[in-house]
Simulated scan of single mutants.
Amino acid sequence: MPELPEVEVVRRGLAPRTVGRTVTDVELLDARIIRRQHGGIDRLRAGLVGSTLTAVVRRGKFLWWRLADPDGAETGEALMGHLGMSGQLRIATADGATVTPGGPPAPSEGPAPDPQRHRRLSLHLDDGTRVDLIDQRLFGGVWTSPLVEAADGALAGVGSPDALLPEGASHIARDLLDPAVDLGAIARTLRARRSAVKALLLNQEIVSGIGNIYADEALWSARTRYDTPGTALSQRRALAILRAAREVMERALAVGGTSFDALYVNVDGRSGYFARSLNAYGREGEPCPRCGRLLRRVIYQGRSSHFCPRCQRRTM
């Protein structure tokens, strides 16, 4: 699943190509991709066609476009999107051709999404370009949502002009790349919970945007085992974990995110290269880069966890 760095790469790719453009048509090829849309395709078209995309914003793994009417007034709604497990937002050229990668394809663990077969919905813009939502597994989707004020009154997310965010994302916590994030408050929340620290990092209502990859990497960096209870953390250790997560996501963002297969690419079809820099995730049986002990992989609470048995000792 694309995590925060991958979604931010997509947001940055969409911004110069879509902001200021007007939606001229919504082409629906698979109604399952708008299953969260109240009123179905008619309501979606009514909210989008003729509207101008004024900003593209991200909080955690959620993206949304702000919408304005033909007179330039805000409509009070946003078009939300979530990439799910395999969603891609790809820019198509004016002649309808999907932009293809300029470099080598990502190493694939399975078939890549077919841009034609797995294209579920397209936004047609007034400059002739097209934004395609391609989703092989159909866990992603788009829908409109009314805007509400962020509870803390700060900018709603990265790329937002103000404190308004979609109601559908109002329960999502701020992420570690958000300028308004309060690391101390998040650390105190982690320490108040008895759950395993990895489960807490994956809880999008505590801190958003972290998934399996970056949780494992942050815990390796902070020398903390995945199953350490939150109540066993000191404030210093909790802050170290959060700072490690932020640092590893910043490094991933700098190289386009992490691509293990062709399911994640950016809007131009290019892969991210951070998989080459991972210290723990996906490296079961390889030596720990820090101490040389062989890394292990276990299934915990239904997810893979990668860790070093020497550097990340059990703390109960």
Rank of each mutant, 00 (worst) to 15 (best):
L242F: 09
R36A: 12
P115H: 01
T22H: 00
V49S: 04
A215D: 08
L125D: 05
G13Y: 04
A150I: 07
N279L: 11
D132P: 00
A192W: 07
D261V: 02
G13E: 10
H124T: 08
V158K: 05
A192M: 08
H124R: 14
L155P: 06
T54P: 07
Q88I: 09
L29G: 14
A106F: 05
T54G: 06
G84K: 05
A215R: 04
D261K: 04
Y264D: 03
A150N: 05
A55P: 05
M80T: 12
E247G: 14
R296S: 11
A232Y: 06
T18H: 04
R193E: 15
Y214D: 05
E250I: 10
S259M: 07
T98K: 08
L79K: 03
C311P: 01
N203C: 08
A180S: 15
P111S: 03
R314H: 13
G140M: 01
E284D: 06
T231I: 14
G13W: 01
D135A: 01
A232N: 00
G153R: 09
S51R: 13
G81K: 01
L123C: 02
T18R: 06
K198D: 05
D261S: 13
E167D: 06
A106L: 02
T258V: 14
E286S: 08
V131M: 10
F260R: 13
T224L: 04
H306V: 04
T129S: 12
P2Y: 08
G110Y: 06
R66G: 13
E8P: 04
R58F: 00
T75M: 07
C291W: 09
S122M: 14
P111Y: 02
V197M: 09
I213T: 01
G110N: 11
V9S: 07
A46I: 13
P101L: 09
G256W: 02
V207F: 05
G269K: 07
L28G: 08
A112F: 02
L14K: 00
D30W: 09
L4D: 00
G302F: 04
M249I: 14
E217P: 05
R237M: 12
G76C: 01
D261R: 09
